[in-house]
Write a protein that binds this DNA or RNA. Structure first.
Length: 437
RNA sequence: GCGAUUGUGGUGAAGUGGUUAACACUCCGGCUUGUGGCGCCGGCAUUCGUGGGUUCGAUUCCCAUCAGUCGCCCCA
């Protein structure tokens, strides 16, 4: 038997409703913040990721799905969403659009060759936002507020927003030098990974879980202390906006993030508790003012974030999140061969009229058909046998109340329609009034 | 890339170096060819992830492999 590839998963009909509801909420929050959806290809020229994410990051150095196509071109299945969106932004000259600040979001599968575990797959779904064209800390604040709103809309509480600033290119250079100077004398006391990072990506040493508590790191200089004036005021302003917007956050001076392209603001959203197992990060993002330029675009600043949608789903599983149902309105019970054609005619009319209808295709007994209707969560069952066909009538049973009426077949459609639009309960009980819409 | 752990029907799961692989649920059929959800009766694994080895004999022991789960690394 051929089975799914490691680290992938099928979303079966029984759970797809939750995904659809989740995706719908994400889109609706995106709309409120006025971000527009962009869809880019699932694979790109490999160079895109090497140049943006960073050659020596784990993502690029050991986690990409690469393949050569028949034209000997190097392709990579996208491991993240920012680079493709930036590529598209540049290639489609969106910087010349009527709207000088382009606010985009995307949602779709990403691919990383990793060992799967809780909250981690080889094909996973990310939802992310990217806002181009302004260096204003207002935009950083908006993006963070947007991310928080998504969680709020999903009723995921108990989250922790951590922010930090890496500063601009100048701050980063200055800081890196100081950090290397500080670490140099005792570099051999750090873990093996950190010794490698010393060469490749010294900033990451800061949030190493192994060495975190060593005095060498505790006493290490922090990026925040090496910010240029502009960088410092960018960060201060951001904090001012977040306070004004009533967004809760904590400043984590050791937060650096793994991707190369970040400047200024970086942030992560974590879930408290053990909803996600050992993974707690549900969203990460930050500002990347030099990325567009370094990918041969104009010098345009940008800021964004990415959510792990699978992780959102995992978190939602723990809090009784209601997905879209696939209940049907009417189950048409057909009794007898001679009734089939007339029944199909009826079904077709109902469906054209927008009534979710289904029937049995296996000549099941009445009892078995009732069971089927139950499993489909049918609101009504219409029984259609020989006598009904002769009389031009049909029995309609309300599955909730058990009431049954015999009506003219011609009136079936309007009957079902009226019954369905009747509120099923007292709407004063609705929390938000959306249930009966 | 490293480590731990698991792999028996549709599902959850017992079990043993040796004739018919327990049990529960689901499902199917019947009692009941026109009103189901209850009840009763009956049925559903030539086979224990896959390949190899040890053995007279393996689902049970060993090795490999694949897959799941969890953790490390890293990240969403």
């Amino acid at each position: 038997m051929i089975q799914k590839m490691k680290g992938t998963y099928d979303i079966l009909p029984s759970e797809v409703g939750k995904w659809q509801a989740l995706e719908r909420k994400i889109r609706s929050v995106s709309k409120i913040y006025h971000y527009q959806e962009i869809r880019t290809p699932i694979f790109e020229n490999s160079d895109l990721f090497h140049r943006s994410v960073g050659e020596h990051t784990d993502i690029v150095s050991k986690e990409t799905y690469d393949f050569m196509d028949r034209g000997k071109r190097k392709n990579t299945l996208r491991p993240e969403g920012t680079a493709p969106v930036v590529r598209s932004y540049i290639e489609n000259k969106m910087y010349a659009d009527k709207l000088p600040v382009q606010k985009l979001f995307y949602m779709g599968p990403m691919f990383r060759y990793e060992r799967p575990q809780k909250g981690r797959f080889r094909q996973f779904v990310q939802f992310g936002a990217e806002a181009f064209g302004s260096n204003s800390p207002m935009l950083d604040a908006e993006v963070i507020a947007y991310a928080v709103s998504v969680l709020k809309a999903l009723k995921i509480k108990d989250v922790r927003v951590e922010i930090n600033s890496l500063g601009d290119e100048e701050s980063k250079m200055l800081y890196k030098e100081e950090l290397l100077k500080h670490l140099a004398p005792e570099i051999d006391t750090l873990c093996h990974d950190c010794q490698t990072r010393y060469q490749s990506n010294p900033l990451r040493i800061l949030d190493c879980k192994i060495d975190q508590d060593k005095p060498l790191l505790k006493e290490a200089p922090k990026p925040i202390d090496y910010l240029t004036k502009e960088a410092q005021s960018h960060f201060d302003e951001l904090i001012g906006y977040l306070d004004a917007m009533d967004i809760n956050y904590t400043i984590n001076n050791n937060l650096v993030r793994g991707l190369d392209y970040y400047t200024h603001t970086v942030f992560e959203v974590h879930l408290n508790g053990d909803l996600l197992g050992m993974q707690t990060a549900i969203c990460g993002g930050g500002r990347y003012n030099d990325l567009v330029k370094s990918l041969d675009g104009p010098d345009i600043p940008a800021v964004g974030f990415a959510f792990g949608v699978d992780r959102l789903m995992t978190a939602l599983d723990a809090i009784d999140f209601q997905g879209d149902d696939d209940d049907i309105h009417l189950y048409l019970m057909i009794l007898g061969e001679e009734q089939k054609a007339e029944a199909m005619k009826l079904v077709q009319r109902l469906r054209i009229g927008g009534i979710l209808t289904d029937v049995d295709f296996l000549d099941k007994s009445m009892k078995a058909q009732f069971k089927l209707a139950d499993r489909m969560n049918a609101r009504f069952v219409a029984i259609y046998g020989a006598q009904e066909r002769i009389d031009g009538e049909i029995n309609v049973k309300n599955q909730k109340t058990g009431e049954e009426h015999r009506i003219s077949t011609k009136k079936l459609y309007t009957h079902i329609l009226t019954e369905l639009t009747k509120p099923s309960h007292d709407c004063e009980d609705c929390e938000d009034g959306t249930c009966c819409g």
